[in-house]
Nucleic acid binder design. Sequence first.
DNA 1: GGGCAGGTGTAAT
DNA 2: ATTACACCTGCC
Length: 297
Amino acid sequence: MPLPTLASGGLHLRRTLDSGQAFRWRWETSPDGSEIAVGILGRHRVRVSQDARGIHVLPPTSAAGRDALVGYLALGTRHRRGGSDRAALPAIESALAQDPVLARILPHTRGTGLLVQNPWEVVISFIISQNNNIPKIARSIDHLARALGEPLGDGVHAFPTPERLAAAHPRTLRACHLGYRAPYVREGARRVADGRLDLDALRVLPEDRARDALREVPGIGDKVADCILLFALGRAATFPVDVWVRRAVERLYFRGQRRSMRELRAFARERFGPLAGYAQQHLFAYARGHFRDPRDS
DNA sequence: GGGCAGGTGTAAT
DNA sequence: ATTACACCTGCC
């Protein structure tokens, strides 16, 4: 059975893949009406769906693709990884539900997990994300992959390597609609390619040191650095504050009063501790669902 | 057309 | 340590 059904472990596939932490997933509807996520993990094109029985890895996903998916979704990693505990999602959500605000939100967002993504891809993806919106971010990344990524067949391309991206002609980047972010992307790629930014080395640094190292790259500020730490480097205590999370925290915890970035970070650390990253995911999802119009609550 | 979108760099306070 | 502004681009 090369493509088994995997225990969901409390993971809600759709909520997780659509939560804004990854940009290369597409959804298709199968003949029986079920929804199938199609994505690219490294050099593997993978297809996956979920129903009451669990998470199904679907053809033509290879065995290697299946393994990549298990790691990516953090399935079967109930115990220690990289020296830190990764508790099962239901246990995490039970802990978060001690907070009355999250207890109210969780029914809408339960199952939103943190992915274990490739740091290089996350660095570039979130540099592109600044002052941008999700459809446009996804489009730019898709353009980059087509222009510079290894072809994997069927018109699908891997994410470009640092070397290829660093060597890309400005004209090529221009065609990816990166706008003023193009020089940031290029410089980030150069630094990863030549070792000035050693992403693997960041894994063993204290969180603050790793954030400082990331912030040295032009185009990476506090928010993008936090996203990289949370979505690719396993730092679940990190609390990226974007406009949506800010809105959610200020309205739900501070009666709509404006708080400084510093206050918001301190709040998250005190309130959610090592699970702040998960709390952020829930607050973000809820805010996007309910605060679309800045006037309503 | 002006404003905004999952920020950041820069200059000024 | 905070605040104001510009910024590619696509969309309303």
